[in-house]
């Protein structure tokens, strides 16, 4: 069922990661991604894995939950691995050579590196951001990070409000989709068999009611917001203002060190000749 999707979901908690400033977490995530793509050697990948495991431990989120969240993209992972495995040409003799299939040592290492990269990318970003940051705090973080742009007439507040409302209504609309699907199934709708065209057409009885309902909700919500004196970002204050703490500065320093560590490991391994 649609409800079982956990990727992108927030798990309330009180770990150090939960308590970090969302702005810092966004910056950390960007740094973390950059670091991931800087990694070029065995040692730096090992280092990344260790740091990612450390993040998992710090977040106090069950490892199984994190792995389960990756299930939807399992296919992409396997696909990327296979591509790298078969299409990486290396120097020297291939390890396997059957008909036109050639697998080189480099193919295997690239495939493994790719896998580590994707797994760490997902685990790291979801732990740093979505799993440990409530969507609303995340939106606040984005809004305040981008606030300087509003001088250039970039509608930062409107964008953040749209995000908030989208986040608020995603669970509601997922539940509603489930319900409409069941209701149309009860009238004999079949979404799983027939040609592609047939299946696309079978979606109409779901999409139309869903859109109608989304518009009705939007309409009612707009009225409710107006009744609660909403009139855009001007003159609006916030209950929770973001404050940087020592832990936030500490986290930034750690992440910079992490990036530097990877660069150092890259250089070190290339010196001793254990590169790619």
């Amino acid at each position: 069922m649609l409800k079982d999707i956990t990727l992108g979901q927030y798990f309330p908690g009180n770990s150090i990661l939960h308590r970090l400033d969302p702005r810092v977490k966004i910056v950390l995530t960007v740094l973390y991604i950059v670091a991931l793509f800087l990694a070029k050697s065995m040692l730096s990948f090992v280092f990344i894995l260790c740091v990612t495991v450390l993040l998992v431990l710090l977040s106090r989120i069950n490892l199984r939950v994190i792995l389960k969240g990756m299930k939807p993209i399992l296919f992409i992972m396997v696909f990327t691995m296979i591509l790298n495995l078969f299409f990486t040409r290396g120097e020297g003799e291939p390890l396997v050579h059957v008909a036109f299939v050639r697998i080189y040592r480099e193919g295997i290492t690239t495939a493994v590196y790719m896998l580590v990269r994707i797994v760490c990318l997902l685990a790291g970003t979801s732990i740093l951001l979505t799993y440990t940051t409530s969507p609303i705090t995340l939106t606040d973080g984005i809004e305040q990070l981008l606030a300087p742009l509003s001088v250039l007439h970039v509608p930062v507040h409107e964008f953040a409000m749209m995000m908030t409302i989208a986040l608020r209504f995603i669970p509601t609309l997922i539940e509603e989709t489930d319900k409409i699907m069941s209701a149309q199934k009860a009238r004999g709708a079949d979404f799983t068999s027939g040609s592609l065209l047939h299946r696309v057409r079978a979606l109409i009885p779901i999409l139309i009611p869903l859109f109608v309902s989304a518009f009705r909700r939007a309409d009612e919500l707009a009225i409710a917001m107006e009744c609660r004196c909403y009139r855009g970002g001007a003159g609006r204050t916030r209950m929770n203002r973001l404050h940087m703490h020592i832990r936030d500065y500490g986290a930034l320093v750690c992440m910079v060190l992490f990036g530097a560590g990877i660069v150092v490991l890259n250089i070190y391994t290339s010196r001793i000749g254990y590169g790619l």
Binding site: S134, P135, I136, T164, I165, L167, R168, T172, R216, R217, E220, L221, I223, A224, M225, C227, R228, C229, Y230, R231, G235, R236, T237, R238, M239, N240, R241
Partner: peptide, 30 residues
């Protein structure tokens, strides 16, 4: 005003943030 459909009048994803929505619009101090 309190409307009919409870789902269509809550704005925020956290209960206390939602309650804060009105006072925030009024521009009160945190």
């Amino acid at each position: 005003m309190v409307f009919q459909n409870p789902d269509n009048q809550l704005v925020a994803t956290i209960v206390e943030e939602d309650i804060a929505f009105g006072p925030e619009n009024l521009g009160l101090a945190p």
